[in-house]
């Protein structure tokens, strides 16, 4: 797999690590069903998936990668920070 890092260009899989589904952090500091969902429960799609990836062996950017979990094809990569509106 090769991932086009928005900052570094096309790079090999081994420069990255993945965190999993790109979900928004729930509101509130009290434990809730929303937190349970955020931490544990997953759509776990067989198909297009939005995931957080970390370019740890590169620029250190967290990315949101839109990727197919069946074909591994990558449709889109953006900086997670930009996505979050920073």
């Amino acid at each position: 797999m090769r991932i086009p890092c928005p900052l570094c260009g096309m790079r090999d899989l081994r420069e990255f690590s993945v965190r999993g589904a790109a979900l928004p952090e729930p509101e509130g500091a009290a434990w809730s069903a929303a937190w349970d969902d955020y931490l544990h429960n997953r759509d776990n799609p067989a198909g297009e998936s939005r995931e957080f990836w970390y370019h740890g062996q590169g620029c250190g950017a967290w990315l949101v990668v839109t990727r197919d979990t069946v074909t591994h094809e990558i449709a889109d990569v953006v900086l997670a920070g930009a996505e979050a509106g920073a």
Binding site: S17, F52, A61, W62, A84
Partner: peptide, 18 residues
């Protein structure tokens, strides 16, 4: 050390990007 760095980057870039 590595895990905390990654964690801090996640916190800064994704959880509190502003």
């Amino acid at each position: 050390a590595g895990a905390v760095m990654r964690h801090a980057d996640f916190a800064g870039q994704v959880l509190r990007p502003g």
